[in-house]
């Protein structure tokens, strides 16, 4: 698989999700996949965008078509999940996949899927807040409206480390990490946790600087929804 095609396809898919959130209709995963030159990269893109493909269903309560559900299932078949994640990116992948599989099960009425290991194994020690916050950013697809679970609980319990992470990303002008963490800040705010930054002001600050990459625009669209901003 060509990584850059996969990333490009993920951007195109994220753009479809954004369109669906704005009311353009469904994401149309089957149609998306049919339009890709390389089906491997296309299925990889489905896994890369992960749980975010379900945002229109989560936010707008749209039903998931059987065809779309089948595409997601196919992505899991083609890219099998690591049975025992060891490397840091494998652990991130395991939680990212768990979130996707869990929402898929919810939307299709299938049995719930078991969570991976202790979230501390993927996030690391919160004492090392800079590294911790980068791991949190990598798991941004877990921060969707109504999200629950061990990682969400672990992040929401550390508002200071989370906000330190987003400040660090903003000052480093790494707006990919910043937009992902902004999404977590917004979720934490929506959960009623008191934060040392103003989440609405943060969303607007990052939005002005994030550029036009659809995956980051999607992060910010989720953040805006979570803080109740227009």
């Amino acid at each position: 698989m060509d990584a850059s095609s996969c990333a490009r396809d993920a951007a195109a898919l994220a753009d479809r999700v954004l369109g669906a959130l704005r009311g353009s209709g469904g994401v149309g995963l089957a149609d998306f996949l049919a339009s890709r030159a390389d089906p491997t990269a296309g299925l990889g893109a489905v896994r890369l965008v992960g749980a975010d493909i379900f945002l229109p269903h989560v936010v707008l309560n749209r039903p998931l078509t059987a065809q779309d559900a089948e595409v997601v299932a196919a992505s899991f078949e083609v890219f099998p999940q690591a049975t025992e994640p060891v490397a840091p990116e494998q652990r991130v992948m395991a939680w990212h996949d768990w979130s996707t599989a869990r929402l898929l099960a919810t939307l299709t009425g299938d049995a719930a899927v078991a969570a991976p290991d202790d979230p501390a194994a993927v996030l690391g020690s919160v004492e090392k807040w800079a590294r911790w916050s980068v791991a949190v950013a990598q798991l941004s697809s877990l921060a969707h409206p109504g999200a629950t679970g061990p990682v969400v609980d672990a992040v929401a319990a550390q508002p200071q480390a989370l906000c330190r992470g987003v400040l660090r990303a903003a000052l480093r002008r790494d707006f990919v990490i910043a937009s992902r963490l902004t999404r977590w800040v917004a979720l934490t705010h929506a959960m009623g946790v008191r934060l040392p930054v103003n989440p609405v002001v943060l969303v607007d600050h990052v939005a002005l600087r994030v550029g036009s990459e659809p995956r980051q625009l999607l992060d910010l669209a989720v953040a805006r929804h979570l803080v109740g901003a227009p």
Binding site: M1, C6, F79, A137
Partner: peptide, 20 residues
Amino acid sequence: PVTTPADLAQLSKLVAEPES
């Protein structure tokens, strides 16, 4: 499509994109 462990590793890297 048939994927290799290298494809999976590549996908993991894209998911766990490091900071700049």
